[in-house]
Amino acid sequence: MLEAFKKTEVYKSIFRHSYQDTQRNRALQIVDNVFLHLHPVRVPRHATNIGYTWGMGGITFLLFLVLTITGIILMFYYRPTAQYAYEDMKYLMNDVPFGPLIRNMHRWAAHAMVLTVMLHMFRVFLTGSYKPPRQFNWVVGVILLVLTLLLSFSGYLLPWDQLAIWAVTVGTNMARATPLLGHEGPFGPELGMMPDNDVRFVLLGGTEVGPPTLLRFYVGHCIFLPIIAAIFMAVHFWRVRKDGGISGPETPKKT
């Protein structure tokens, strides 16, 4: 039955090559697949060695995908207004089938992603992989690190509980002290900064953490930041390929 199906035009139109284990088919498996063609066809052996790469970049990407999917599912039950947000969280945790599981996965994957991003950076530094020709990709990576932290931080407010509001209050209050642009920063008052026109106001949509803040953080968390992060991720992966694939020793010194 399966063999018969394999001979149909439908099957051939989907897979376009046979599954015999040949060099050519192995290559086609990568090249003909929109998801896998991110990879080169062949890599140096040490690139498949987890001891060298720690696999942290790939795991970070996986966690980003998990977060996107679970995040979209959570959006079905969550309303970003001060009136409903907390109730929706309670509803989600108590009455929605698999609600706690999805929310837990979203939260733990977010924590784990921050962790893996940091470890990925540590590995890339220790192997000197930011050195020419990969300088710019390191810069893109730093931007992605910042975006990861911002994504996680903006998500922190959404449950609208005590933990959320105070973590975000403490976090965003630092913006008051921005030099020049904050109303309590050095030279801020001299430039006419007030609680209702400084950089913190843009973040909060008010002079204190309140309902407009929830909405701003929600939009940032669900739409704005993920799109920016996705764009930079595309650049990051593309540059990994264009800068010569995964890093490795320049000239093999075999003994």
Partner: peptide, 22 residues
């Protein structure tokens, strides 16, 4: 005096060796 990675520089096919790890 030389990196271990330098001895592992022969090319392997991504399918299956890298995809498997992933």
């Amino acid at each position: 005096g030389y990196p271990v990675e330098a001895t592992l520089d022969d090319k392997v096919q991504v399918w299956p060796y890298l995809v498997r790890v992933e």
